[in-house]
Nucleic acid binder design. Structure first.
Length: 1042
RNA sequence: GCCCGGGUGGUGGAAUGGUAGACACGCAGGACUUAAAAUCCUGUGGCCGUUGAGGCCGUACGGGUUCGAGUCCCGUCUCGGGCACCA
């Protein structure tokens, strides 16, 4: 039998399907192993070669664990709500559910082609009402609970109500809004129903809140902090501004400490844990109250981590949004302050970030009283103080804090040294904690460790301050003004939100006519006519029009896989008891502070309610790296009659080497085409404007004759094409029709067309043009200079290659694989050519899975050859079966058992690239030994099965087995086959390798030492010197020290 | 600026403090072939030397610990990632 990957793979894919080989049941007599991949968003672009990396790795681990006797759950599903489907719906008028369904189908097909052992009967989709019923249900639970710091867990809101009725909230130590008033039982009981409900919102774990949010006008929705990068939206790169809006919020801050502590008990990459720690941002400090001069009713509360520097405070700064600003501003400063506030409000997040260094602010005219010295400190407003952190106000200590120093210097405010070790305060602030305090009243002469408790005690006694732990973590905005998300199961009555009754869930997404906001600016859901749920016909009520954010459905999905079809519960207690939690979680590091933090938060909450068995749901996390794309750039120089210089960042990542295409004279009548085309091994690029479109016929002929594909870049006059995309496209179309009709004909596989200008201008504004990675730009003469080229933004990260005569350059850049960068490689093509087994092993062989690396198809032939050689252990070139039942030799067994040991150990530590190496070594050795023995080859098939399942299944059945190789037993190595009668020692003299000796395995260290010292080469290197010491490392090395 | 990772042949990458460069790609030479592809064999870190002597230098750079350092420690450079007026 001959090795034909595609045929074998098709055969076994069908067989697995027919025999339900990957069906997982809750098998109580077997130990469980739960592997989870972060589920993908099914984008329209389909899979690229970067996606499967983690899936393949998890599949290998899963197959291995199954062979070791575990009941393995390694499920797959789709995080199917999201922006792109909705944007597509807006553009094309297709319902998001339809395009999502289509995308999922394609994803599933691609995943199945990889031979992944997912149990598709457990597939979940977050957009399925049967699924999001439970997302909404968890939301309801959050609404019905509050977090009690004394109990250190979430408790039902009814507990709180009972306490309020009895004793008010004076003794309640719970997570709540910072401005929650203290009320007595009488006050509470006197509240109306609405007042009580509004009051409770201050405690609920999810609640509507008026806050500053990241508003993205282009997307028409708010974004969470982790969806904003560099002041623009992560998706689409649109500007983001701060806006005060009413939004649903999740009180994740209640869990700040728990989320921090939980990190200690999970085996996650240190980098991720560190990022989460930074994001939570715990800092220990104090709140200090500075009374406002002449206003006995007002005082400024500040948060500081350096209360010890309080004597160095020379002024107070409020955030522009701070509520005191309006109350304290002196009349004569009124205009100036107002202007400043207006200016601040007008700046976008992006501008603000770009101008971090600039010092701005304004004096309010008011002063605060220093609580210890009684001196007057001017109160300023400045945007370097953020309203969202601490109290939104600071005491400025210019001698110890660089930002305060900058401000003090700019506004000529005093800088007072407070530690005798502070230096060069005229140059910069010195934040040291060393030395003893000076100019510091009650702490003069003390050290940092002594001063802090003393000050806090003093402040507490005088009711002017207290110790405080502060977190950077903010409550998470939970509503989005979009259509394609989970509806929030809430209705409003008299501006008070009420939960839908549980039996009404799921609240199904209603149909709407257009996926756009209403004319009055309400979210798309406001267009819905047909809400299934009607709270009560008599009363007036309103629906909730926001939907949940993308991270809602992904915050609990791992439980659903345990029991995916349950309509009575999110997951049955039995399934929870068996599967408990994820043993191995695999996914990208980009979710470090988004999904991975929110999902931990939900899990802690569910744990508090006794609904799930573990505090932390993912015991181990592994981050796979990214497979990056390679984007090529070519430069072409000026042509005699072609007046543009062009930089082109090209689309095919495998374009690495460019040569000017030399069209032989016998093929081309006119040689000028020579200068217009660039060629690689399998592709010709022709740069042409519509005026010269008929010339490409010559190029086409040449390309076809060479068996190369032709890529045509239409480079119209850029200004014109940017301003008039439609006309440009039309012009190109007409030119093609009249002068190069062959390009319009279908079924010419050798030709690809790309309307670069057209595509660019249709999709992107001129403003976006400079950031775009498919980029054409006109350049000046002097850019031929390499150094100058590098200064252009698009080339800063590029690697250059200078062409002959310095006439053109080519270059490439490694970057994330993404559709928008036109550097995507689709796995389908690779699988078509080499087979899924080869693709799987090649991706693993590329390097450690945690590393990011560019996709490069170069080495894949090595794997291809390896698989053929492995096959050739079983069949000869004529396809004759070679396997015999002979007794294996010691050498053969040693090769096998060495491989078993190495591969077992390496899978356990998830080093899959070296596993592939060991399989190669085994194959090479067995071929060298001409080993065709069943006793060796059968275990070898099991060893390769996790990596190349199709090939293994075929050979397994050829070996006479009826059942799947997936249920074979993982071989165990036996030490007795690994040992040998002789051991070769490396011999060093003074740490330098000088030779080898081979001794009996039983030789004692003393015997080895004697033998080594008698060696001629040892004596030569020792020379006249006396041997001072001999170190014998058993089994490895001998070092002679002279 | 702060916090994490990295830096090893032409390339991807191996190496519990114990023979650096496994395995593979690429390249060179050879076999088979009319030829090419495919396949197989040999070689392949650099330098000097030899033509079955060998030697020296090599894991970003400079120091240190150790019998022994790619690996541990200190400092420098550099690349990547994350955070960033967080008081």
């Amino acid at each position: 039998m001959e090795y034909v990957p595609r045929a074998i793979e098709k055969k076994w894919k069908d067989w697995w399907e027919k025999h339900q080989v990957y069906r997982v049941t809750d098998c109580l007599d077997k130990p469980k192993f739960y592997i989870l991949n972060m589920f993908p968003y099914p984008s329209g672009a389909g899979l690229h070669v970067g996606h499967p990396l983690g899936y393949i790795a998890s599949d290998i681990l899963g197959r291995y664990k199954r062979l070791c006797g575990f009941n393995v759950l390694n499920p797959m599903g789709f995080d199917a709500f999201g922006l792109p489907a909705e944007q597509y719906a807006i553009e094309m008028g297709i319902h998001p559910a339809v395009s999502t369904e289509e995308n999922i189908r394609r994803y599933r097909r691609q995943l199945e082609d990889l031979g992944l052992s997912f149990d598709w009967s457990r597939e979940i989709r977050t957009c399925d009402p049967k699924y999001y019923k439970w997302t909404q249900w968890i939301f309801s639970l959050l609404f019905r609970h509050y977090y009690d710091y004394d109990a250190q867990k979430a408790l039902p809101i009814t507990h709180l109500i009972a306490r309020l009725e009895k004793e008010g909230n004076a003794q309640v130590n719970a997570a709540c809004d910072s401005d929650t008033p203290r009320i007595s039982a009488e006050e509470w009981n006197a509240y109306s129903e609405e007042q009580q409900q509004l009051f409770l919102l201050q405690y609920r774990l999810t609640f509507p809140e008026e806050t500053y949010v990241n508003w993205c006008p282009a997307l028409g929705t708010v974004l969470s902090n982790d969806e904003v990068k560099d002041g623009v939206s992560e998706r689409g790169g649109y500007p983001v501004e701060r806006r005060r809006m009413k939004q649903w919020s999740m009180r994740i801050t209640a869990y700040a400490e728990r989320l921090l502590e939980g990190l200690e008990e999970i085996d996650w990459p240190e980098a991720i844990k560190e990022q989460q720690r930074n994001w939570i941002g715990r800092s220990v400090g104090a709140i200090v109250r500075f009374p406002v001069e002449g206003r006995s009713d007002l005082s400024v509360e500040v948060f500081t981590t350096r209360v010890d520097t309080i004597y160095g405070a020379t002024f107070i700064v409020l955030a522009p949004e701070h509520e005191l600003v309006a109350q304290i501003t002196a009349p004569k400063q009124w205009t100036e302050v107002q202007n400043y506030l207006k200016w601040v409000a007008s700046r976008s997040e992006r501008e603000r970030m770009a101008e971090v260094k600039r010092v701005t602010g304004v004096f309010t005219g008011a002063h605060a009283v220093h609580p210890l010295t009684g001196s007057l400190l001017p109160i300023y407003v400045a945007d370097y103080v953020l309203v969202g952190y601490g109290t939104g106000a600071i005491m400025a200590v210019p001698s110890g804090d660089q930002r305060d120093w900058n401000f003090a210097t700019a506004f000529r405010l005093p800088i007072v040294p407070i530690l005798d070790r502070q230096k060069n305060l005229d140059q910069a602030a010195d934040p040291t904690k060393e030395g003893r305090y000076i100019n510091s009243g009650i702490i003069n002469g003390l050290t940092y460790e002594e001063a802090v408790p003393k000050l806090i005690e003093w402040l507490q006694q005088h009711q002017l301050g207290r110790a405080r732990i502060q977190y950077k973590l903010r409550n998470a905005v939970f509503s989005r003004q979009r259509y394609w998300g989970e509806p929030i199961p809430i209705y409003w009555k008299n501006s008070v939100p009420y939960l839908l009754p549980e039996e009404e869930l799921p609240l199904v997404l209603p149909e709407i006519d257009k996926y756009l906001p209403t004319e009055t600016g309400e979210p798309p859901l406001a267009r819905a006519q047909q809400w299934r749920y009607r709270p009560s016909p008599e009363e007036s009520y309103e629906y909730e029009y926001n939907t949940m954010p993308g991270w809602a459905g992904s915050s609990w999905y791992w439980y659903r896989y345990m029991d995916p079809h349950n309509d009575q519960a999110f997951c049955s207690p039995e399934a929870l008891q068996y599967w408990r939690c994820v043993d191995y979680y695999i996914g990208g590091a980009e979710h470090a502070v988004g999904h991975l933090l929110y999902s931990r938060f939900w899990n802690h909450f569910l744990y508090d309610l006794g609904l799930v068995p573990e505090r932390e749901y993912a015991k181990k996390l592994f981050n796979q790296g990214m497979i990056q794309g390679r984007s090529s750039i070519i430069y072409r120089a000026r042509e005699s009659f072609y007046e543009e210089y062009l930089w082109i960042k090209v689309l095919q990542p495998y374009l690495q080497e460019f040569e000017p295409m030399r069209i032989p004279h016998n093929r081309a009548e006119e040689s000028f085409t020579y200068d217009f085309a660039f060629a690689t091994n399998d592709l010709v690029i022709e740069v042409v404007s519509h005026k010269h479109i008929d010339k490409i016929e010559t190029v086409r002929q040449t390309a076809e004759a060479d068996g190369k594909r032709l890529l045509i870049l239409f480079t119209e006059e850029l200004a014109a094409s940017i301003n008039e995309p439609e006309r440009t496209a039309e012009r190109i179309r007409q030119a093609l029709q009249s002068r190069a009709p062959f390009l319009m004909a279908e079924g010419i596989p050798a030709i690809e067309q790309l309307f670069v200008s057209y595509e660019l201008t249709q999709k992107y504004s001129p403003e976006a043009f400079s950031r775009l990675h498919v980029d054409i730009s006109l350049v000046d003469d002097d850019v031929l200079d390499l150094e100058k080229a590098r200064q252009r933004p698009m080339f800063q990260k590029a690697n250059f290659k200078v062409g002959p005569e310095g006439r053109f350059l080519c270059a490439y850049e490694i970057e994330k694989m993404s559709k928008s960068k036109y550097n995507v490689i689709n796995p389908d093509e690779v699988i078509e050519q080499y087979g899924a087994d080869c693709f799987r092993m090649y991706e693993m062989f590329l390097g450690p899975i945690e590393a990011s690396k560019p996709w490069d198809v170069k080495g894949i032939t090595g794997i291809q050859g390896f698989l053929r050689r492995f096959w050739s252990l079983f069949f000869d070139a004529e396809g004759t079966w070679l396997v015999r039942n002979d007794e294996p030799s010691r050498q053969e067994l040693r090769a096998l058992h060495t491989a078993i040991k190495k591969i077992t150990e390496d899978i356990e530590r998830f080093s899959l690239n070296t596993c592939v190496s060991h399989l190669m070594i085994l194959t090479n050795e067995l071929r060298g030994l001409k080993c065709h023995k069943r006793a060796v080859l059968e275990p070898a098939v099991v060893l390769i099965a996790p990596f190349a399942p199709h090939l293994a299944e075929e050979l397994w059945h050829q070996l006479g087995h009826e059942s799947t190789v997936c249920d074979a037993h993982w071989p165990r190595w036996e030490e007795r086959y690994l040992t040998s009668e002789h051991i070769t020692y490396a011999v060093q003299v003074n740490g330098k390798l000088r030779g080898n000796i081979t001794v009996e395995a039983s030789a004692s260290p003393a015997e080895i030492e004697a033998l080594v010292l008698s060696q001629e080469f040892v004596r030569r290197f020792v020379g006249e010197k006396a041997v001072r010491r001999v170190i014998v490392v058993p089994g490895r090395i001998v070092n002679v020290v002279a």
